[in-house]
């Protein structure tokens, strides 16, 4: 193949980008838009969670512990237990939300949590209706 001068000069067209506005976001001043339906942190509507542990059974990473609830919020919750999730193990596959009978367990778009101790990543899903 013949090497043409054009092929050496054409890449310089990238220089035109100098005059354009940068396409990167200036985090944290500007944040990217959150998407509805993003598989982020868990939320659990305690007024409908029935404490059935379906979510615990399906989670193959054994990320979910069923722990005693402080104050009963749903009279239909027969076990008095609610899920708590080990975020060191969760892979956000959302199988647990798929199998939740009353659909109380959901994933929200929020997904940022920084900590200097990995052992703190035991997450109590926020009590939010969805």
């Amino acid at each position: 193949m013949k090497f043409e001068l054009k092929n050496s000069l054409a890449p310089l067209s990238a220089l035109s980008k100098i005059f354009e506005h940068p396409q990167t976001l200036c985090y944290p001043e500007v944040k990217s838009e959150t998407v509805s339906g993003y598989r982020g942190f868990h939320i659990n509507d305690l007024s409908t969670c029935i404490g059935c542990a379906n979510c615990q059974d399906v989670c193959m990473n054994e990320a979910i512990d069923m722990i005693a609830i402080d104050k009963d919020k749903n009279p239909k919750n027969n076990s008095g237990c609610i899920p708590r999730i080990d975020y060191g193990r969760c892979c956000w596959c959302s199988l647990c939300t798929d199998v939740c009978p009353p659909d109380s367990l959901k994933l929200e778009s929020e997904c940022i949590w920084a900590d200097d101790d990995a052992n703190r990543f035991l997450y109590q899903p926020k009590d939010k209706p969805c």
Binding site: M1, F3, E4, K6, N7, S8, A10, P11, S13, A14
Partner: peptide
């Protein structure tokens, strides 16, 4: 098309890859 100019037709890539 921009990638053609910048990469695939780029003489320096051709020199290395052919």
């Amino acid at each position: 098309d921009a990638y053609d100019r910048l990469f695939f037709d780029n003489a320096s890539f051709q020199k290395r890859a052919i």
